[in-house]
Amino acid sequence: MIQRVDSKVDADTTIYLFSHGSTGVEGILRIDIDGYIMSLFVQEEARGKGIGTELMQTAFAVLREIGKSTVGLSVHHDNHRARALYERLGFLPYMPGHDGYTQFVKVL
């Protein structure tokens, strides 16, 4: 089950998506309303079960719902598992970032 929680601090809104399983929270995704995925985390014991994919697909739906047409994120070049997930979901690298990170973008 995916739970959405919106958090507003001053003028900034962050949307949290929580994936709940039999052991509690198994994954968390955090996005800002500008269409940037700030973080994705899946508990180690829950990896490989499609939780990251489900959280990302839910994030895409939320972003479309608020009128966004693209989504961006950054990932470290050593994080091969995350890069594979993002590329499988249609993200394309478009700009090398700082400290070994690459910016990715996807059209929704």
Rank of each mutant, 00 (worst) to 15 (best):
G48C: 06
V105I: 14
N79K: 09
D99F: 13
D12E: 12
I28H: 01
V105K: 14
I51K: 00
M38V: 07
L89R: 01
K68P: 03
Y94G: 01
S22P: 08
L17F: 15
R88Q: 15
I37H: 01
G52E: 03
H80I: 11
M38I: 09
N79I: 08
G50I: 09
G21S: 07
I66M: 11
L55S: 02
I37Y: 01
D12T: 14
M95S: 15
E87Q: 15
Y94N: 09
Y94K: 06
F104E: 01
I15Q: 04
Y101L: 14
P93L: 06
A46N: 02
G27R: 02
G67I: 11
V105R: 14
T14E: 12
L17R: 04
S19F: 13
E87M: 12
F91W: 09
M56A: 04
E26G: 06
V75P: 05
E44R: 11
G24R: 09
S74V: 06
G100H: 12
G50P: 03
T58C: 10
G21T: 02
M38N: 11
T102G: 02
Q57N: 14
E54Y: 00
R88D: 15
V42E: 00
I51Q: 01
I51W: 04
E87T: 15
K49D: 01
E26W: 02
S69E: 15
L40P: 00
I33F: 04
L85K: 09
E54S: 11
Q43M: 12
S39R: 11
M95L: 15
V71S: 05
M56Q: 05
I37C: 11
R30D: 02
G52Y: 01
G100F: 11
E87I: 15
V75M: 04
G100C: 12
I28E: 08
M38R: 12
G35H: 03
Y36D: 10
G24D: 05
D99Q: 15
I31C: 13
P96N: 13
G48N: 08
I28W: 01
R47C: 03
